[in-house]
């Protein structure tokens, strides 16, 4: 009888470990997925801000480009639109 109980306890421990491992694998994949998603959105946003000087969200190396700023002011778009009269 004692042996039976010991065997059951061992089975329970093994099953618990198996379930925990399975959950950990799923959790790892979820974290990897989240990192990929954040990376992908960041890459797409940076790419699109390079494509459009006036609506850029990230520093693109051309903030001091007075000609580009003036063009955006004239077009009344982008981060400079608050500066535009009216």
């Amino acid at each position: 009888m004692t042996d039976d109980v010991k065997l059951d306890e061992a089975d329970v421990a093994a099953a618990r470990l198996k379930a925990r491992k399975s959950r950990n694998v799923w959790l790892a994949w979820a974290l990897v997925g989240f990192v990929v998603i954040v990376g992908a959105t960041t890459a797409i946003r940076i790419q699109s801000s390079f494509a459009d000087e006036c609506t850029r969200l990230y520093f693109t190396g051309s903030m001091s480009d007075a000609a580009a700023e003036e063009k955006c002011r004239q077009d009344k778009v982008g981060p400079y639109r608050n500066d535009v009269e009216g």
Partner: peptide, 13 residues
């Protein structure tokens, strides 16, 4: 968990 007890359940995905 024991021959006459309710089975123990472990969560899966």
């Amino acid at each position: 968990s024991a021959p006459t007890e309710t089975p123990i359940r472990f969560a899966t995905a």
